[in-house]
Amino acid sequence: MMSWLTSFQCLASAPTETVGTEGGFLVLQVIGVLLGVMGLLFFLGAAVGLLRFPDFYTRMHAAGKGDTLSTMLMLAGFGLVTMEDLSLGSWLLLIKIMAVVLFVYLTSPTSSHALMRAAFEDDELPLTEDDLRNSKRGKRRKKR
């Protein structure tokens, strides 16, 4: 265990790069960090929705949308943060990360759709207003 920790500390205190000396890349990094934090915010939304929503379709709504958007935002943020110069290599890296973003953008909604269809054909019924009213009343009765 100790060895893991020490290697982790090595990583944490690894070369504090000389980024930020040039103004342009600092701006890029700040934008990247902002995008990453926004992505975390959307993932928080997805996680809370997945935890709190009452039936499968609403949970799928939260998870599908929040998951795709937060993945896109976080990966774009990392693409900007890791960009240290305007050399060919870093452009290539940005394009590769954007390829992951494009792939997730195409496939994640599709898999959500396929799951939704499978659930719908399994007669998984969405929660209607009546159900909600009945269950609320039932809960209150139980509490009393």
Binding site: M74, V104, S111
Partner: peptide
């Protein structure tokens, strides 16, 4: 339902792709 579980697995799988980029950084 089993669909909820699969949905969760799917979400974690997508996030693992992000985590891989984090580890790469």
């Amino acid at each position: 339902t089993s669909f909820d579980r699969i949905l969760g697995v799917n979400v974690i799988g997508t996030k693992t792709a992000v985590l891989l980029v984090v580890i790469g950084t």
